[in-house]
Design a protein around this nucleic acid. Sequence first.
DNA 1: GTAATTGCTCTAGTCACTAGAGGTTCAAGC
DNA 2: GCTTGAACCTCTAGTGACTAGAGCAATTAC
Lengths: 141, 141
Amino acid sequence: MQMRDFAIGELAAETGVKIPTIRYYEGIGLIEPPPRTDGNQRRYGETALERLKFIAHARAMGFPMVELKAMLRIAGHKDAPCADLDELVRGRLVEVNERIARLTALRGELSGMLESHHHGTIGECRVVEVLSDHGSCATEH
Amino acid sequence: MQMRDFAIGELAAETGVKIPTIRYYEGIGLIEPPPRTDGNQRRYGETALERLKFIAHARAMGFPMVELKAMLRIAGHKDAPCADLDELVRGRLVEVNERIARLTALRGELSGMLESHHHGTIGECRVVEVLSDHGSCATEH
DNA sequence: GTAATTGCTCTAGTCACTAGAGGTTCAAGC
DNA sequence: GCTTGAACCTCTAGTGACTAGAGCAATTAC
């Protein structure tokens, strides 16, 4: 059984990661430099495909680059304890919760702005006022 | 009655915007170049302070730079209709709602990942699986 | 009057990519 | 086997929104 191999464009199509981005990832050492054809073109195997999918998905979930690197390091040791990875996911969860809270507060502020002014001109517009005066906010941001 | 004037550091302290950032804003034309002392140092008046507060607050609320510029243009015309500004705020509100929705979905996914695996090692860890396989996600991101 | 603080300009660096120039290789059809 | 067009290569430079640092000048406090 022979493994399929992919040109960079196929890999891109398969994962949704753009071609220059794949090369960029290689440049910064996030993925391994793949073998090349005689004509110097990159050819990727299944493993590279999986790894890139992993990366793409984690990025889409908002994991920052540094954590991503840590995850890849961990995911590489098949016998390492799950706890390490858990830790990262848990951290991310906390962050997501915080961001939801902040955005929810912001939503309140924005819709408040819209409700409370119907004077017609900017000169007396509450939106401008509210924006200028952070002190009147209910929340931190 | 004479207006107070502020050195750049005072302005920074007052608004929470860092000094290099204030100069950067001046460079890109977001704020006016203020008058200078004989020794070439910037001195700001109340108006500049207000404008910078406006900017800082809008940025903190996540308005992107382009919208910020539009808002400043509008806020400058004291007799312009409020509707224009409303439009921007409304747009931002839609965006905030979308982001809340996406983050909420993400939260579900993350906590799902944490619940569904207690095997001990990475080799059989669902976290790695889920991250690799976007197809198994309930949602878009 | 002097010392500490604050300010000035300018260049370059950050992150995570993206765009473009200019050239080479591959795969498919004839 | 040959041609053609798509896909690939490297390299440089640009993006946005700042941030950091060097090297020097002005201001302020004592």
